[in-house]
Design a protein around this nucleic acid. Structure first.
Lengths: 135, 135
DNA sequence: TCCTGTCGTAACCGTATTGGTTACGACGGA
DNA sequence: TCCGTCGTAACCAATACGGTTACGACAGGA
């Protein structure tokens, strides 16, 4: 949904729209404007968009769509690590339980890294282009 | 937890244990035996372990720990795709909404692929070794 | 100055997921 | 026959997520 929202803002800008309102975006994503405002709020925290209030308010990209990668979007939206360790701390009296977390942490880090690197290959502009090109 | 359980089964085997019971594994993972049985049930479905019932029952790896990668474990446990598309189908009357899903699907597939490739670099035997080696 | 449109945010709901727990039947070796 | 273990259903609490309503804050125009 975040990728969709950003692509829509970019399309709107290319059509001459100064800013995009959460209601317009919600109409395309088919959800509630509040959901969009929450979502874009996180992206604003990551420095990807800015919002204007008052009359004629709305949202705008802070950087060219070509330079915003899905890795940044992903990181902004899915803040916490994707790979969680055990909910309860394992049995420290067992050799495995004692060392399992420090054994898995680097593996998880590498996995997140690989994921991020792959997502970095696609930009919001790419998403928009492929969306428009779809049959 | 799945990686932990498999590593424990392997450690137990190296110590001469024929099979590992869900209660023993649960003791190391610090959870309930039923949770372990459910978990290993999925891994059995993926052909990674087998279970024996009756007296003296328990679990055993079906393949050498060196040949079981975390990618297989991950796939067995986290069956469905990690990247979900929109919960509600987007507005088909909008160019972005109409094409966004077919634009994102290949990106998601590539991301899952990158993730899997990274996890494939680590085996259950690696996890056990690193766990035991931990300070 | 007031009015209007939009964001910002809190509050709440329903649903789904997850790990945990209890319970009990099924199985199979001793 | 007995006993230990798996297999599985049922239920619970906690959490997360998208959705919805509501309302104050803000800013620009009339």
């Amino acid at each position: 949904m975040a990728a969709h929202a950003l692509a829509w803002i970019e399309l709107n800008a290319r059509r001459g729209g100064e800013v995009a309102t959460s209601e317009q975006i919600a109409n395309s994503v088919n959800t509630n404007p509040v959901v969009i405002r929450r979502l874009l709020g996180e992206l604003r925290g990551a420095g990807l968009v800015e919002s204007r209030r008052g009359a004629g308010a709305g949202w705008r990209l802070l950087r060219p769509a070509e330079s915003i990668s899905l890795a940044e979007v992903y990181r902004a939206v899915e803040g916490d690590p994707q790979f969680a360790l055990h909910p309860a701390t394992p049995n420290q009296k067992c050799p495995v339980g004692q060392g399992i977390r420090s054994a898995l942490t680097p593996v998880y880090d590498a996995a997140e890294q690989a994921l991020s690197a792959e997502l970095a290959r696609t930009s919001v502009a790419d998403v928009l282009r492929e969306s428009i090109a779809a049959p």
